[in-house]
Design a protein around this nucleic acid. Structure first.
Length: 473
RNA sequence: GCCCCCAUCGUCUAUCGGUUAGGACAGGAGAUUCUCAUUCUUCAAAGCGGGGUUCGAUUCCCCGUGGGGGCACCA
């Protein structure tokens, strides 16, 4: 059992996004890699901006991603631990105690109702052009941050700062350090946006007479278009979004672990176990990575393709169920799909699995299997009906397929029958394929025609073929 | 403005002084398949600039430039 204790410390002030997910993941990976402890701590000291709803989003997202926490709020089998409570809003007593220690050491003072942390060094007043106000600068000794990823970073912290607001609530820098001490955190793995704050934190650790933990500031994820880091408002930023769209969490984890880290070599698709085994802090990059939705979609497809059929079927069912429950557009249709015969559903999903890039394509891709009122792609329709003799081809197919002489029980027989028909007319399978597909599915692309014919059954196929033929009347 | 971090194909990245600078996504072309997707083959695509150090720099150092972050009684 290693002594490593890491923490993920989000604040419930908004939706959980991909950057937070990766920070959580790296912490989780490091804990698992070292056999250490992964702590979830909720930094909700800003009462005005926190909400219970966003707290649930954090819990749900972490669990969906498979990043269970060893210590933290107790939710569905995760959490507990002897360093609680794990919500900062419930740790007032701890902060008061630590504040007293700082006061006793003469490292605080009151100003305008707030409590400030006093740096050590000579003071002088300076007018700050940028902030347009007079500030007191302190000639403090440089703070050294020995970062596991960045190496040695030196920074001068030259202004006292508030640690307890005038309303009595402690500030982030203070509670963050106090909790890292109280919870015996050994490694602080967090975004590079905190690198500049680290000097404040180190100063605080030193004031408490505690050796700072090992810092590891990981690069940021940049938005895929335009300048700046990824934020909650950006396209593709929200974990909840991927969850709703039926992304596989293991694919998402695989993708985001590759943003700013690599296992060495050319491999990209890695199992969770391999990632845990290979992950380490020195392997983390120093430069920011731009988010790429296309590559992530590709990773998701690879995972979908690799799923055992039953597993794919189960995920697909869960996806349709969530669509039906969500109640948005298509909920009624999804409910219909969920209510379909299980064996039939499984057979349809068997056709779809090798074809779709994501579960979210399933409703449109399989609509015609589950109801007679399915959408028709008008562009495809115009194109297919615009050439050859569609009406004649449809009529021939209706005659062929409605005949009891045509075996409708296996794909090969159906294919052979249509090929024979084509040959007799001096045509190819392709001359029937497009128009038949349009008639039966409303689309120009989809699973193998003969396989979907067999699944649909003779009656529905013939009816749909005849219906389109009649429409051409 | 001040402080900190970073810098290889469009994007994610490999390389830890000597390579035809490799892989993946995206893009182009082709093959296969009843369409589509997959798969396979293939093409195009990179060391920011300038100084050093060195027999030799993508790699080490410095300066620019560019990108990112921070500078709250937010976290």
């Amino acid at each position: 059992m290693s002594q490593v204790r890491v923490r993920f410390a989000p604040s419930p002030t908004g939706f959980f996004h991909i950057g937070s997910a990766r920070t959580a993941l790296f912490n989780w990976l490091y804990a698992r890699h070292t056999g250490g402890v992964f702590v979830l701590r909720i930094e909700d000291t800003d009462a005005a901006r926190n909400s219970e709803r966003f707290l649930n989003v954090i819990h749900d997202s972490l669990r969906w991603l498979g990043l269970g926490w060893d210590e933290g709020p107790q939710v569905g089998g995760c959490g507990g631990g002897e360093h609680g409570p794990y919500r900062q809003s419930e740790r007032g007593a701890v902060y008061r105690e630590y504040l007293e220690r700082l006061k006793a050491a003469g490292r605080t003072y009151e100003k305008e109702g707030a409590t400030w942390f006093r740096l050590i060094g000579e003071r002088h007043e300076v007018y700050d052009e940028h902030r347009q106000k007079t500030v007191t600068k302190v000639k403090a000794a440089p703070v050294v941050i020995d970062d596991a990823i960045r190496g040695r970073v030196e920074r001068v912290e030259d202004e006292d700062f508030v640690i307890v607001r005038s309303d009595g609530n402690p500030v982030f820098h203070f509670v963050n350090v106090v909790d890292d001490i109280a919870m015996r955190i050994t490694h602080v793995i967090r975004g590079e946006d905190h690198l500049s704050n680290a000097s404040k934190h180190v100063a605080l650790f030193e004031a408490f007479g505690v050796k700072p933990p090992i810092f590891a500031h990981i690069p940021l994820i940049l938005k895929q278009n335009g300048p700046g880091k990824m934020s909650k408002r950006d396209q593709g930023a929200l974990i909840e979004e991927y969850q709703k769209r039926g992304y596989l969490p293991e694919a998402l984890v695989n993708f985001i672990c590759l943003l700013g880290w690599n296992p060495g070599g050319d491999r990209e698709k890695l199992s969770r176990e391999e990632i845990v085994r290979l992950f380490d802090l020195p392997g983390v990059n120093q430069s920011n990575a731009r988010f790429d939705e296309k590559k992530m979609a590709h990773m998701n497809m690879l995972y979908l393709l690799a799923l055992p059929a039953e597993e794919f079927c189960a995920r697909a069912r869960a996806f349709f169920e969530s669509l039906a429950t969500e109640g948005g557009a298509g909920a009624a249709e999804a409910a219909g799909v969920v209510g379909a015969d299980a064996a039939y559903f499984a057979a349809v999903m068997g056709l779809a699995q090798p074809k779709v890039k994501g579960l979210e394509e399933l409703p449109a891709y399989t609509a015609y299997f589950f109801r007679e009122e399915y959408p028709v792609d008008e562009k495809a329709k115009a194109k297919v009906l615009g050439k050859g003799e569609p009406k004649a081809r449809l009529a021939e197919l209706v005659e062929l397929l409605s005949s009891p002489a045509t075996d409708f029980t296996n794909d090969a027989a159906i294919e052979a029958a249509i090929k024979a028909l084509a040959e007799a007319r001096g045509l190819g399978f392709g001359d029937y394929q497009a128009v038949a597909r349009l008639a039966v599915t409303g689309l120009s692309a989809g699973p193998s025609l003969t396989r979907l014919f067999r699944l649909l059954g003779r009656e529905r196929v013939v009816t749909r073929l005849a219906r389109l033929a009649a429409g051409l009347g």
